[in-house]
């Protein structure tokens, strides 16, 4: 038997089991048009050939019809708040300090919505259906991601 200074430490009841795995993600074909466009400050969705719904970002199918989306459709950076919540708890490693508003934004001409932040308005003034517009980061900071948009703000005149 080998001696050990831990012997007096009592029984072991828990076990650390950390595990780290490395991956290389490759964006899907339908995501490519969206990602390459947003790198240039433009918003590209895709249309269902069946029901003509437009999805942004699009994952390659109309989830309603189960068919592949086809045409690329350019959308503006304006839309409405579909749903929202006020976040009161801090999220680890998130630089945004609560309370803040996370919303589902449906761009004009789109049939789905995506998550984003709401800014330049008091949290208690945010409403469902409120018209909003993207506030972009400086062009020099643009990358392949939706965070090229810093947040959405209410369109002028919507709040006091």
């Amino acid at each position: 038997m080998s001696s050990n200074p831990n012997e007096s430490a009592g029984p072991v009841t828990m076990m650390q089991a950390p595990l780290y795995l490395q991956y290389r993600f490759t964006a899907g074909t339908s995501s490519l048009s969206f990602l390459h466009a947003i790198k240039r400050g433009r918003l590209i969705g895709r249309r269902c050939p069946g029901c003509e719904s437009v999805y942004i970002p699009c994952r390659g199918s109309c989830a309603r019809c189960g068919v592949a989306t086809c045409d690329n459709i350019e959308l503006t950076d304006e839309g409405v708040i579909d749903k929202f919540t006020v976040v009161h708890i801090p999220i680890p490693n998130n630089p945004i300090k609560p309370p803040f508003v996370v919303a589902h934004i449906r761009l004009n001409g789109a049939d789905n919505a995506f998550h984003h932040l709401i800014g330049e308005v008091d949290n208690d003034k945010v409403k469902l259906g409120m018209k909003v517009k993207a506030v972009w980061r400086p062009e020099s900071e643009w990358d392949y991601g939706l965070d090229n948009i810093r947040y959405f703000k209410p369109l002028g005149g919507e709040h006091d």
Binding site: T29, R59, S61
Partner: peptide, 25 residues
């Protein structure tokens, strides 16, 4: 499979399997 996400992998085989037997979704 490179630029094929799970939807883009699955959808063609689902459609092929359904079309081959003639059953609708």
């Amino acid at each position: 499979a490179g630029c094929a996400n799970e939807v883009e992998l699955i959808m063609p085989v689902i459609n092929e399997a359904l079309q081959a037997c003639g059953l609708a979704r």
